[in-house]
Design a protein around this nucleic acid. Sequence first.
DNA 1: TTGACCTGTAAGCAATCGCTAACGTACAAT
DNA 2: ATTGTACGTTAGCGATTGCTTACAGGTCAA
Lengths: 118, 118
Amino acid sequence: MPSARKTSQQADADVFTAIAHPVRRRILELLADQEQNVMSLSQPFAAEISRSAISQHLKILQDSGLVEVRKQGREHLYRLEVENLNEVYRWIQQYERFWTLKLDALGEYLENADKHGV
Amino acid sequence: MPSARKTSQQADADVFTAIAHPVRRRILELLADQEQNVMSLSQPFAAEISRSAISQHLKILQDSGLVEVRKQGREHLYRLEVENLNEVYRWIQQYERFWTLKLDALGEYLENADKHGV
DNA sequence: TTGACCTGTAAGCAATCGCTAACGTACAAT
DNA sequence: ATTGTACGTTAGCGATTGCTTACAGGTCAA
C-alpha cells in the first residue's frame, strides 16, 4: 500500500469531536486553500479569539490526524490531511439512501406541480 | 416547496455537535432500521448508561432536528429525520476532491505495481 | 382506584471544554 | 549579544457536558 506509513502520528482523537467546533471547521477550510502558518491562521479570528486558542485548536486537529505540521524556520506550517475525514464521510454515506428517497419524492412533487400548473 | 413546514420545531442546535457523541451516532443508526421507543433504544446501552441519559441524548438529537417524536399511548416513538445531516454532508463534500486525488494516486500506484510485478 | 409502566426533567456532581494570560523555547535579525 | 518574532504549553477560570439519582406526569391493566 502507498501510505502504509503512519506518518509518525496515529489519529488518537475522535474526528467527529474535532470537527464539532465551528472554529476548527473554519481552520480546515482555510487550510483547504493552502498550507499556512499559525499567524496566518489566527488572523481571521483575531477579533474574537487569541492566537493561543488557535494553537490549541490546531493541537486537537493534529491529534485527530486532520492536520499535519512541517517546521520551516521559526514558523510551523500546517496542511490539511483529509484522509481521516473518510470516517465521517463513510458514516454519513450510510444515510444517503434517505436523501435519494427524499429527492425522488421531491421530483415527483415537482412533476405533478408542473402537470397541474402551479 | 414540499416541506416548507418547519415540522413545528426548527433546528436550533448544531448538527455537528449532535453527531459528535458516539452514543448519539449509535442511536441514529438504530433509528435507521426502524422507528423505536426509548426503552428499545436504551436496551443496547443498558450495561453502560441509564435510560435517563438516553433520554437526554434524544433531546439533543431532537433539538438538532435529526430526530422526531410521535407519541403513541404511553410510549414515545422516535424516528430518524435525516434531512439536517445535509449540512454535514455538504460540508464534507467540499473535500471530496482531495479523496479523488488520493484515489487517482492510488490507482496510478497500483497500475505501476502491476506492470512491474509486485 | 391502585399499581405497574413509559417517559421527561430537574438537581447535583465530576470531568471536560474553551478561553485568556503568562511563560518558555527556538529561530531570525540587527 | 540583544532584541523581536513565531510558536507551544501551562495554569487557572467560568461554562458546559455527560452522567446518575430522584421525582413527577401521563398511560394502561387489574
